[in-house]
Amino acid sequence: MIAETVLHGSLLLAVPLALAAGLVSFLSPCVLPLVPGYLSYVTGLSGADLAARRRARVAAGAPGGSGARIETADEVLQRRRGTMLAGSLLFIAGFSAVFVAAGVFVGGIGGLLLDYAEPVTRVLGAVTVVLGLMFMGAIPGLNREVRIHRVPGAGLAGAPLLGVVFGLGWTPCIGPTLAAVQTLAFTEGSAGRGALLSLVYCLGLGLPFIAAALLYRRALGAFDRLKRHYRAITVAGGAMLVAVGLLLATGVWTDITAFMQRWVADYSTVI
């Protein structure tokens, strides 16, 4: 059963696309600038706190200062790295629960509508093309942001709830990529495969959060450099969505899937 699921022809195409869609979502202007805030939220350690600590160290070392030993910002981050990692994992678990549940539902609906899969897939493909253009900002008026602004209390206890809020909130950056992944989940016609694709999307979106938690200071510098390339990132991500939408709308996706299913039909795993 595992081999049938993993080596299913359409999954061989859909899984890397879902992973890429999650990464594009993370790099989008709606998410990337908020990462330091999310990490500060779950750890209770903000940039202002680190700046105040630096000022206190300078004051303590100045003539007439107390001379007391005060932890450096790097020492504080090192000490709280475990907390930041745990908070990131809980945050990811929160939005993953939302997205995977959606994948199960959409995949299950696809299974119930197998007799109408082709026309529905073509319509969803056309919608995905529109979402790709929307992601690139090529459709004026569709880039409003609607987000749930009430959030739970800060700290590890609130991290998974914050993830759920993040998953339920709608932004024009996450919406198109997530909708494209759910379209692929529908074409799978299986709740299990829909869940798998959504989970892979969550990995693409969540793994950079973990990397940011482990390499906080370096990650902030890398994010600043990436911000200068937002336009290229959104164009590339939108182009990927448009390409997937065109494959679905024209039926080429189905043809490629059928070919890959025949290609892997005789493959067998070692175990």
Rank of each mutant, 00 (worst) to 15 (best):
L77F: 13
Q78F: 06
Q78T: 12
Q78H: 13
R79W: 08
R81S: 10
G82Y: 05
T83L: 14
M84D: 09
M84C: 11
M84E: 11
L85D: 10
L85V: 15
G87L: 12
S88K: 06
S88W: 05
L89A: 13
L89Y: 10
L89D: 09
L90F: 09
F91Y: 15
A93D: 07
G94M: 01
G94H: 00
G94S: 01
F95Y: 12
S96P: 01
S96D: 00
F99A: 06
V100A: 00
A101R: 01
F105C: 11
F105E: 06
G107I: 07
G108H: 10
I109Q: 05
G111P: 02
L112Q: 12
L112C: 01
L113E: 11
L114G: 07
D115G: 09
Y116A: 15
A117N: 02
A117Q: 13
V120F: 15
T121A: 15
T121I: 12
R122V: 06
G125F: 03
G125N: 07
G125L: 05
A126Q: 09
A126D: 08
V127N: 11
T128D: 03
V129W: 03
G132M: 14
G132I: 13
L133W: 04
L133D: 03
M134Q: 15
F135R: 12
G137C: 12
G137Q: 11
A138M: 12
P140I: 05
P140K: 05
L142S: 04
N143A: 09
R144M: 09
E145I: 15
E145P: 02
V146T: 14
R147M: 14
H149C: 00
H149M: 11
H149E: 13
R150E: 12
V151G: 09
A154S: 14
A154E: 12
G155R: 11
G155P: 10
A157N: 00
A159Y: 05
A159R: 08
P160L: 06
L161W: 11
G163H: 08
V164R: 10
V164M: 14
V164K: 11
V164H: 09
V165E: 08
G167Y: 02
G167I: 01
G169P: 08
W170D: 07
T171W: 03
T171E: 06
C173Q: 12
I174D: 08
G175R: 00
G175V: 00
P176A: 09
T177A: 13
T177L: 14
L178T: 07
A179G: 07
A179L: 13
A179T: 10
Q182T: 05
T183F: 07
T183Y: 06
T183K: 06
L184W: 04
L184Q: 07
F186Y: 11
T187V: 15
E188M: 12
E188V: 04
R193P: 01
R193H: 01
G194F: 07
G194M: 10
L196R: 02
L196V: 04
L197Q: 03
L197C: 02
Y201S: 06
Y201A: 05
Y201F: 15
L203C: 11
